[in-house]
Amino acid sequence: MGYNKPLPYPNSETKPFWDACRDGILRIQRCSDCGTNRFPPTGVCPACQSDRSEWIEASGRGRVFSWIVVRHPVPKDVYADKVPYVVAIIALDEGVRMVSNLVDIDVDSVQADMPVTVRFDKVTDELTLPVFVPADGADRGS
């Protein structure tokens, strides 16, 4: 059975991010002029308007900024086999935020600011999703 969940369609700005995920590397952009980190990818630095940027490897460490527990699947046929699941906004140590899933955790035991680390889940030959798990030593709940 094929993968039936939403698939990212990378473009020239975002392809380096998804390519790196396949290699197990979490990448974010850094402005080549003022050094401000940014994510999601864009062409211009919002801090200094420079169009020069480079990709850096993020530590993969961060903290839970906010989270939800999806219990009612939408679309139903796509997510019925996945609920309940946690979607979180992760504040990476590099100062940017990323939306992802928090996995390997009791969905009712997520805490604000809990430390998390990235894990790469290959879902198709083309796509590897960066998800997050509680950092070593963090309370994983029951």
Partner: peptide, 10 residues
């Protein structure tokens, strides 16, 4: 949307 929907945030 490629940075939100693949995680079931829809």
């Amino acid at each position: 949307t490629q940075f939100t929907a693949p995680f079931g945030w829809i």
